[in-house]
Computed example of a mutant assay.
Amino acid sequence: MTALGATVFSLFCAVFAGYALSRFKNRLLDVYSTGLFAVQMFPIILALIPLFLLFRPLGLIDTPLSVIIVYGVINLPFVTWMARSYFDTIPRELEEAALIDGCGHFGAFFRVVLPLSGPGLAAVSIFAFLLAYNEFFVANVFLRTKAAMTLPVGIQMFLQQFSTDWGSLTAAASVTMLPTLILFLFVQKFITHGAIAGGVKG
């Protein structure tokens, strides 16, 4: 649930940010683009103590919301650049044709660009989900009770100081792989090449 929430949050923001970076050029977007690189290079470990002090008065410690917010922010630079790269491959002529037919800019985006970006967004969602699903350190800091723990943190509990329950550890690791396998099986049909081939003549 935590990884899914972080994926939806980061993907929602990345779609609009990536489209803006792909289609519009101005100084504000250039600053935002540079800021994405700066955030990507910033180690999250340096922000854990300030975030802990910020989340504690808000009652977000030991709740999935705190981890969803952190994962979403961590994933946002990467998924935004991936979304921008895919939007760059969609011909502008398709949007211009939609505008001539009477669509506004938002209509052209939701009716033309967004449906055609399905393969790219499917790939983005897989990367965003895996980055959040496999993360251990942040969840280990903000989630304290067993009911709130993510799977990587829960699996670590099988490793004891003087012994390890290898059978239970292997079984838990195998079950942990199922959500990613199901997600891939669900979105793989959207990851096809040439989804917009032939959309523009010439």
Rank of each mutant, 00 (worst) to 15 (best):
M1H: 11
M1W: 11
T2N: 11
G5I: 15
G5Y: 14
G5W: 15
T7W: 06
F9V: 11
F9H: 09
S10R: 06
A14P: 02
A14L: 07
G18A: 13
Y19E: 07
A20L: 14
L21W: 08
R23Y: 03
R23P: 13
N26K: 09
R27K: 15
L29H: 07
V31H: 13
Y32E: 00
T34W: 09
T34F: 09
G35K: 08
F37W: 07
A38H: 02
Q40I: 10
I44F: 03
L46R: 00
I49D: 07
P50E: 03
P50W: 00
L51T: 09
L51C: 04
F52S: 12
L53C: 01
L54H: 03
L54N: 05
F55W: 02
L58T: 01
L58E: 00
L58H: 01
L58M: 13
L58Y: 01
G59D: 12
L60E: 07
D62H: 06
P64T: 09
L65D: 11
S66M: 06
S66K: 09
I68L: 07
I69K: 07
N75F: 04
N75K: 02
F78G: 05
F78E: 00
V79P: 05
T80M: 08
T80G: 08
W81S: 09
A83Q: 06
R84S: 03
R84L: 06
S85C: 03
Y86K: 08
T89K: 14
P91F: 03
E93A: 13
E93T: 06
E93D: 14
E96W: 00
A97G: 09
L99F: 05
L99Y: 05
D101G: 06
G102I: 11
C103L: 12
C103I: 00
G104Y: 01
G107V: 02
R111G: 04
R111S: 06
V113W: 03
P115C: 02
P115E: 05
S117F: 06
P119H: 09
P119D: 04
A123V: 10
A123W: 02
A123F: 06
V124R: 10
L131R: 11
N134S: 08
N134Y: 03
E135W: 01
E135Q: 04
F137Q: 00
F137M: 07
F137E: 00
F137L: 11
A139H: 00
A139C: 04
A139G: 06
N140D: 12
V141L: 15
L143M: 01
R144Q: 14
T145M: 01
K146T: 15
A147E: 14
A148Q: 12
M149A: 11
L151A: 15
Q156R: 12
M157Y: 10
Q161L: 15
F162S: 14
S163A: 15
T164M: 10
T164I: 15
W166I: 11
G167W: 08
S168Y: 01
T176Q: 03
T180V: 15
L181P: 07
I182P: 14
I182F: 14
L183S: 14
L185A: 15
F186I: 12
K189R: 15
F190V: 05
F190H: 02
I191P: 01
A195R: 11
A197K: 12
A197R: 13
G198C: 12
G199K: 14
G199Y: 13
G199V: 11
V200L: 13
G202W: 13
